[in-house]
């Protein structure tokens, strides 16, 4: 505990930007999911580290991280199921080729 946790805000910010830029610039749908996982993890770092400082029972942030991990698992399962289903019908996983889903 020789340093405060404020450096983790900056770490999480950089990690979120890495995920965000990766999400924007990627063409593959699987890599988009990877970028989303990175963004979710950057938020989890903040929840877990802040829980030590601003929470009287220390653990509410940890509960939030557990819920977020379960949500991320559900999101990955559904996302990969969608990608496999689209691959079967269209023969591609390239998100820029999914032109039929345009609104």
């Amino acid at each position: 505990m020789s340093f405060d946790g404020s450096i983790f805000v900056i770490v999480a910010l950089i990690m979120f930007l890495i995920g965000f830029i990766g999400f924007i610039k990627s063409q593959s749908a699987i890599r988009m999911l990877i970028a989303v996982e990175i963004m979710i993890n950057s938020a989890n770092i903040n929840f877990a580290v802040f829980a030590l400082y601003n929470d009287t029972s220390f653990v509410t942030g940890h509960v939030a991280v557990l819920i977020s991990i379960a949500l991320a698992a559900a999101e990955a399962a559904i996302g990969l199921g969608l990608i496999l289903s689209i691959y079967r019908s269209h023969g591609t996983v390239d998100a820029t080729d999914f032109v039929e889903f345009k609104g």
Binding site: I30, A72, A73, Y87, G91
Partner: peptide
């Protein structure tokens, strides 16, 4: 959950969706 579960799920999805993926 993450390093053991989701990543293995992703590797399977890549394997199942062909070479161009």
């Amino acid at each position: 959950v993450y390093a053991g579960g989701i990543t293995v799920l992703m590797l399977f999805a890549i394997s199942l969706s062909g070479k161009e993926a």
